[in-house]
Design a protein around this nucleic acid. Sequence first.
DNA 1: TCTGGGGTCCTAGGACCC
DNA 2: TCTGGGGTCCTAGGACCC
Length: 421
Amino acid sequence: MPLFALVDCNNFYVSCERLFDPRLEGRPVIVLSNNDGCAVSRSAEAKALGIKMGVPLFKIKDLVNAKQVIVRSSNYALYGDISARVDSVLSQFSPRIENYSIDESFLDLSDLPCASDPAALGAAMRATVLQWTGIPTCVGIGPTKTLAKLANHIAKVNPVMKGVCHLKPDGLDAMLAAVNVKEVWGIGGSYLARLNAIGVQTALDLKRLDPVRARDLLTVVGQRTVQELNGIACSDLELLPKPKQATAVTRSFGKPVTDRQAMEEAVSFYAARAGEKLRAAQQDCGYLSVFIRTNVFNKDPKYSASRSIRLPVPSNDSRMLVHYALHGLASVWREGYRYAKAGVILNELVPAGTGQGNLFQSAPLGKSSAMMQVMDQLNKRMGRGTVYQAASGIKRDWALRADYRSPRYTSRWTDLPKVKC
DNA sequence: TCTGGGGTCCTAGGACCC
DNA sequence: TCTGGGGTCCTAGGACCC
């Protein structure tokens, strides 16, 4: 009988900030998205104040001031490092582990001798992760990944479960009847509306939906969800991370960009950064897209456009990527708009050096890989951005905001915590 | 004034083939 | 008057996730 566990870190970014600043314990704390835009992680105290997931900071400014909510910019270098520590603790419990996201991992508990009492095993995992990393978690256990996710949700919202929920066949339906269908993994806003329209309100209603009807309504994705709720596994663990199919660097600007030169700098910067990511993953890309758009929320005149370009040969050379990104930009640029965001997306990724060549254009940049290697090494040793192409600009008026950032405690020598004694 | 970023998967529809 | 059928490949766009 298959058995999966989902271990999910509680308000992960806030928990990471608390590790290094115990003054945040017991206080309302939020961590902001890039550009200090929205609240993306909230402590229990912040949730109790009614701060919703994803709410823009400017809309809760008064509440933040009145209740002395502590605000942090996001610090992904720190969170990534802590996430790896949590994963390494969990992998001691089961060798079959999928690191699903920065704060969640699936574990395969099937055939584990110590899984005769799954709830006790879950409690042991929680306690060990907390003791060894300082990060609080919840554990959901069930016969499919979808049910393990749902069990995790139940563990999170019901304090009596003490952070662990094992969904067993008997009593399952009663548990599902108490959960809104929107909490089911794979049911987002659009699917929710379609389900509600035919009277499906709870997770149990969805479990009992005819799979063919589910397919008509929600494509094969919804059909699989229904089957997983019925204990039929449609999704196995992905033990080895698959090579990425796409990589993107997109950013909102710290303030609107109206000037073409500034936009060219930003797009160059993103393309060069995307090249770094490709080289780190030892991949080339064959297809590049660039997009620019105005603010989608305010009353500024709207404009949004993108252009995709096939590279003559797959490449990860930043100069090549910058060249084509600027080419794409030239074809979508319109004067007179207040641009809020731009990005470069790379598709058709292949292992570096294995892509289909081009009879007429094999190595247009000569010793490009040696040059990129030197740049990458300098930036690794001296810090990101030590050397870059001049096309990416020097002043960078458009750079994003991070007014409340904590130090990169575990990933920058200059940011190591100092101890006075 | 101020609203994130980076992914995956699926489908419809057009282009093209014989 | 009356103009096929079946297949693949590609891409854009929509849905979802954290």
